[in-house]
Each structure stands twice: as structure tokens, then as C-alpha cells.
Nucleic acid binder design. Structure first.
Length: 494
RNA sequence: GCGCUUGUAGUAUAGUGGUAAUAUGCUGGCUUCCCAAGCCAGCGUCCCGGGUUCAAUUCCCGGCAAGCGCACCA
């Protein structure tokens, strides 16, 4: 089968089986960049979140939740108001829009063009007679394109929908610090919606205007960053790292080395940051991505965000969109807390090191996941067509249905009733069981294959006599016969 | 945001200036039915707005949306 055909089959499955629908609202034609999840997609997302929450609790992280709307001041302090507004030239004739600073850098490489004011940029185009690359109409004014969505609260107070959850977590710092009782690092995470007014959203849920973030934060002292106890527990782990120097040498594949090697060779500067790389990789592995489809790619200094000292993307190799970032791991230094301390006139200096008389503003290390991208990449990388049979080889605990129960035939009351009993038994144990009687037995297996259901249980004539059923495995299609009393044990250990 | 292409049942597509079709799907029935079997019956579609026309799903204009390319993606 050709790859394009496989991708077409996959894209239609997303809709057919209720994973992802949109752009929403579909009945009104849709608004670009907004998608909904159907029952299967939402169930799967919830399973991903449960797995993350369980893992993070085991690593000592606690969850917080903050408002999605914050006043202007917050975004002034965070730097988003300044940095999230792109200066653009817009052609008066054909509406072509170009990013002003990049355009000038490209046309006038000899001029100093970094950090120019709007006025200076306007003077430059006038001086050199620069104009629209399409129709050559001269550019005049620099306009702002704000990537943040603005709203007003109450009687006209300007506020913005958060472009990331992270900043809202940082605003809790003094509360968290009290709560943590001097146990550092402070480890928290926040899951929630973020909003960005993308110029042209594309690629399904990979670039939405309203999307989920799952952002993990460590507030940590400078001393502890370099000498971090938990690092010693994980530094033997082998991680596929692609640093930016390798990328500059046109090397496209990651170097599989231990974190210890990476730190010792200076690829990673800080033990605590290496721990974050580990944690990001660990969580991605737990989801069940094939090992060869994961890599960690370092940003070049030019690529890095305004707040970052080091940044790595955890990427998944997809057929439709190439390497897709599902997680960004950033060393945000003390940038955020310094700025918020300054703008709010709070003192965020605290003693964190061995010398309790010396105070410092905490450093922040961040592991930022995009759950929507996780859902897409998980579905795509586990989607297979084997001899015309479509199957999602999802990690069983992430599947929308954990089991499905079928009566072999439905016109035989005793079989139907026993099947219902088995289904109810599973539900009583809060196992996500799905009951289906429609169509042939083969068709029912195929329906569940498309949803990634790991186990299908069929009740047949023999079941009436011997109280046993067949459990059919999604991946091997093999069936084994077990007693009804043994079902729970049998489907538990995968 | 610009350019090109596109928009027809839930999904995938065909087709037409006189309101439409194929496959699949879905619902019900029959068939003792373990990997998309068969038979019968039924359900469901022309993105939105305006224009031209006796008549528009079809032609024209605008909008919205999608794919690709450019730009954008702190």
C-alpha cells in the first residue's frame, strides 16, 4: 500500500471513529484552528493525562490550576506582550504580509537590524525604497500582529488569554514556596488550555488556536542545579540526543548516549536539566512511542525563545508531518521570577543553597508537553494496515475501550444474556468495557481494532456449559479460552 | 496573510443548468456466525451568502474551510 493511501485511511479514521472532529463548529463551516475531540479521542486523552499524573506523583510533583485569563500587566512582565507581537509590513495593494525585522535582515544584511524600533524600520524601507516582494508597492508603516488573544474584563480592563500555562504557574511562586516548606526543588505542573492567535493554523491539531498544555516546572537553586541528588538515580539512562552542533554539521540522527556522558561531555550543562530531559523522555516512553521514532533535538541559539538558556524539543517521527515536537524542555533561568518580582514589586529572593544567609531568585526548569500533539502522534505512529485490516496498536492502557464483549450470536437469548453479564461484571470492576451485538463476529473485531481495543471477549455456545469465554488479542489475533472467573486476571497483565 | 487547487450522505468518491449517484457505513429483520460472509427492508448528501436565469448543487462574485507552495510557527 502506498504511503499516501495509508495517510488518507488514517485521516478518515480520525473522523469516522470519533477521535478528532473539526474545525469546529462544523455545522457553521468551522473556524480555522479549533478542533473538538469525539468520545474515543477524549477517552484516550484522559488516559494519557491519568498516566502522566500517576507518573509525576511518583516523581514528587504536585498539580496546580490557574485562570486562563490574566491582566495585561502579567504579560508585560513575562515579556509576551513585547515578544509575542510580530512587527509586520502589510502591502496596501495585495495584502501580502511579511515579518518586518526578518524582511529587513534579508534585504539589508549589512545594516544593523536587530532590535530596531518600528520607526527605524519604517525609515529603513523609505531610505532604500523597499516594497512588497509580490507587487513591489512600497511599504510604509509597520503594523503589529499580536499572537495573543485580547479580551476585556468587567468594564474595559484589558486582559489576555494565556499563551502558555507556565507563566500562570510562576505567579504562584510565593504561595508554592510557603507550601513547600523549604524543600527544593519545588516540583509542580499545570494542565490546561492555552491560546495563540496563529496567523495560519494548519496540520490538524498540531497548530491550533486553542490547545492543551501540560507544563511541568522545577523551581531550583543554582547550586542544586549543578549537583542534583536525583540525577544520580537516572544518569545511566540512554537518551537519543541530537545537539545543535551536530545539526549544524548536517547530522540528522541522534546520538544515543547516557545522560552521564552528555553531562560529562558538556552537551548538557546542568545535572538538574539532564533530569528534566530524562523525565520528558521517560513520560514519552511510557506512552508507548516506538523507540526509533523519538529523538531530542536541541535548539540553536537563534531558535531559542526569549527566556531560554537551553532548549530541547522532544520530537516524534510521523509519516504525514515529519518530526513533530510534542514536548519542549527549557532552561528558563531566573528570567521569569526576576521579571515578575520587578513588575509586581515582590521580593522573590530566598535562601536555597547550603549557605542559608545567601539569597537568590530561583531558577526555573520546564518540561512542556502538548497533549493534542501527543494524541495525534500516538494515533499516527500506532496506526497500521495489515492485509486490509486497520489496527491501532495503542498502548493498552491508553485505548478508549480496554475490552469489548460480544455474544457470538445475538438471536440466542442465553448467549446474549451471559454476554451482558460478563460486560456488567467488567463494568463493576470499572474496566472500560464496550458491548456490541451488531454484525458478524469478524466485523465486530475489526471495529474494535480501529479503536485500538486490546481485548475482545466472545461468549459462545460452549460458554453456556463450561463458563469459559474466548479472549482475542488485538495484536496477535490469537484467541485463548479462559474461565469467566479468570477474565480479570487474564486481561490484567499486559 | 498571499498564490494555486478543492468543497456532493457518517466515510471515500462519481456526476449534472431541470434538486442526484456508487461503494462503504448506520438501523431493523433472517441466517447456531470466531476475523469486514450472504439475503431482505430502511436511513442519510450537493459548505454559506449574493448575483445571472423561467430554473443554480452545477455558471459568476464574495465569504468560510481544507490540501499544497510562500510567509508565519516567541
Amino acid at each position: 500500500m502506498k504511503i499516501e493511501d495509508k495517510i488518507d485511511a488514517f485521516n478518515s479514521l480520525l473522523r469516522r471513529r470519533g477521535f478528532i472532529w473539526g474545525p469546529s463548529p462544523e455545522i457553521y463551516g468551522g473556524l480555522a484552528g479549533f478542533y473538538s475531540y469525539g468520545p474515543a479521542g477524549k477517552a484516550m486523552k484522559n488516559n494519557v493525562l491519568s498516566l502522566f499524573r500517576r507518573e509525576l506523583r511518583a516523581y514528587g510533583f504536585y498539580e496546580v490550576e490557574c485562570p486562563e485569563i490574566m491582566p495585561k500587566k502579567v504579560w508585560e512582565a513575562s515579556g509576551h506582550l513585547e515578544r509575542f507581537i510580530d512587527p509586520v509590513f502589510r502591502c496596501k495593494k495585495c495584502d501580502t504580509m511579511v515579518r518586518a525585522d526578518k524582511f529587513l535582515q534579508d534585504r539589508l544584511p549589512d545594516e544593523l537590524s536587530d532590535g530596531l524600533s518600528f520607526e527605524e524600520m519604517e525609515n529603513l524601507v523609505k531610505k532604500h525604497g523597499l516594497g512588497c516582494p509580490k507587487c513591489n508597492t512600497s511599504f510604509e508603516r509597520v503594523e503589529k500582529y499580536n499572537l495573543m488573544l485580547q479580551t476585556s474584563v468587567g468594564s474595559g480592563v484589558i486582559a489576555y488569554l494565556r499563551p502558555e500555562t507556565a507563566t500562570t504557574t510562576y505567579l504562584l511562586f510565593n504561595r508554592l514556596n510557603q507550601d513547600a516548606r523549604r524543600q527544593y526543588p519545588i516540583k509542580v505542573f499545570q494542565y490546561g488550555k492555552a491560546f495563540r492567535n496563529e496567523i495560519s493554523p494548519r496540520q490538524l491539531v498540531l497548530r491550533m488556536r486553542a490547545f492543551d498544555q501540560f507544563e511541568i516546572q522545577l523551581f531550583i537553586g543554582k547550586e542544586q542545579e549543578l549537583n542534583y541528588e536525583e540525577y544520580n538515580e537516572i544518569n545511566e539512562n540512554i537518551i537519543p540526543l541530537l545537539d545543535w552542533k551536530s545539526q549544524e554539521s548536517k547530522i540528522g540522527f541522534p546520538n544515543k548516549i547516557s545522560l552521564k556522558e552528555a553531562v560529562d561531555n558538556g552537551i548538557l550543562k546542568k545535572q538538574a536539566f539532564a533530569y528534566c530531559i530524562y523525565l520528558g523522555y521517560h513520560l514519552a516512553s511510557k506512552l508507548g512511542f516506538p523507540e526509533e521514532k523519538i529523538r531530542l533535538r536541541q535548539h540553536s541559539p537563534q531558535e531559542m525563545a526569549h527566556y531560554a538558556d537551553d532548549a530541547w524539543d522532544l520530537e516524534i517521527n510521523t509519516e504525514q508531518f515529519g518530526w513533530v515536537e510534542i514536548c519542549g524542555i527549557h532552561d528558563r533561568t531566573d528570567y521569569d521570577l526576576k521579571r515578575h518580582g520587578e513588575y509586581s514589586k515582590q521580593n522573590f529572593e530566598i535562601p536555597m543553597g547550603t549557605d542559608s544567609s545567601s539569597k537568590e531568585v530561583p531558577q526555573i526548569l520546564e518540561i512542556a508537553f502538548g497533549p493534542d500533539r501527543i494524541i495525534y502522534t500516538l494515533l499516527e505512529t500506532t496506526f497500521n494496515i495489515i492485509d486490509e485490516r486497520i489496527v491501532l496498536n495503542l498502548n493498552p492502557i491508553l485505548a478508549p475501550n480496554y475490552v469489548a464483549v460480544f455474544p457470538l450470536v445475538r438471536n440466542k437469548k442465553s448467549i446474549l444474556n451471559l454476554a451482558k453479564d460478563v460486560h456488567k461484571l467488567l463494568l463493576q470492576h470499572r474496566i472500560t468495557s464496550f458491548f456490541d451485538t451488531a454484525g458478524s463476529i469478524g466485523k465486530r473485531y475489526r471495529r474494535q481494532d480501529e479503536l485500538g481495543t486490546p481485548y475482545c471477549i466472545t461468549i459462545d455456545y460452549d460458554s453456556l456449559d463450561d463458563n469459559s469465554v474466548t479472549i482475542r488479542d488485538r495484536d496477535t489475533m490469537e484467541q485463548k479460552r479462559v474461565l469467566i472467573s479468570e477474565i480479570l486476571n487474564s486481561i490484567d497483565n499486559k
